[in-house]
């Protein structure tokens, strides 16, 4: 009950918030003084390669810790309630080390077990997700027989397991043909009706039929500066 209250609060639109976020690897500053509030719906993070899009997603997905600053979920720092945050998180990184010998169903059940889902729940959700992503006929095939596009969709499908409230997706349409890219985008935007979705893309043209917000990361980073060096150039609602 307490968990549910924490997860779903329909009165609050500001779900995920980053506050004075900084990430540095040794001496290299990747993100500096970045603050933003992500509302319910889709926010597309754009910017040139190397500007820190994936790093920002990894930080929001709790895959890495920020060097300084905070990430808040419904006003609470995620590092203080990590387990609860991860219960509502769906994360699809760009690169996944797939266990090639497993079938798609086994892979999904493996991830489902990590999300504390029962086998039957996981099985039902997998059926529905793979149906939507046009992978249902290959559900029992080993992943090694999957093409690049099929792997991408499978990697995406696992993020939707367990009805996540916060969905973080790195380049969902990479390696996908226009037809499959549209299927994936439909799924993401349908989910965004009751979740906060953060995604990166280089191909924002393919999203012209959807409503979303944009967070554009600039690339005028200065390694020696601790100032606001990753400015928010554009934040607009389309």
């Amino acid at each position: 009950m307490r968990l549910n209250q924490w997860i779903v609060n329909p009165n609050l639109m500001l779900m995920l918030e980053i506050n004075q976020l900084e990430k540095r690897y040794k001496k290299q500053i990747v993100l500096s003084n970045l603050s933003h509030q992500f509302e319910q719906g889709v926010t597309v993070i754009t910017g040139k390669s190397g500007v820190g899009k994936t790093t920002l997603l990894r930080l929001c997905a709790s895959a890495e810790k920020p060097s300084s600053g905070q990430i808040l979920w419904f006003g609470k720092a995620i590092n203080k309630s990590l387990k609860k945050y991860r219960l509502v998180l769906g994360y699809a990184p760009q690169q996944i080390d797939f266990p090639e010998d497993l079938s798609a169903l086994d892979f999904m059940c493996h991830i489902g077990a990590f999300k504390n889902l029962s086998y039957s729940d996981c099985y039902n959700q997998t059926q529905q997700l793979l149906e939507k992503l046009d992978l249902i006929k290959d559900i029992h095939k080993p992943i090694q027989a999957y093409s690049g596009g099929m792997r991408r969709r499978l990697g995406l499908a696992q993020a939707f397991l367990g009805q996540p409230e916060c969905l973080i997706i790195d380049e969902p349409s990479a390696e996908l043909d226009p037809f499959n890219a549209e299927i994936v985008h439909n799924l993401i935007f349908e989910k965004a009706k009751n979740a906060t979705v953060l995604m990166t893309t280089h191909l924002s043209d393919s999203l012209k039929n959807y409503q979303y917000r944009t967070l554009h990361l600039g690339n005028d980073l200065s390694n020696n500066s601790t100032d606001f060096s990753a400015p928010l150039l554009e934040s607009e609602k389309r």
Binding site: A61, S62, A63, L82, K83, K84, R86, L87, L89, Y91, A92, P93, Q95, I96, D97, F98, P99, E100, F107, H110, I111, A113, F114, K115, N116, Q158, A159
Partner: peptide, 13 residues
């Protein structure tokens, strides 16, 4: 030994 650690690492399990 190969596992999708990128996803496992952010799981609540």
């Amino acid at each position: 030994k190969i596992s999708p650690w990128q996803i496992e690492d952010v799981s609540p399990l």
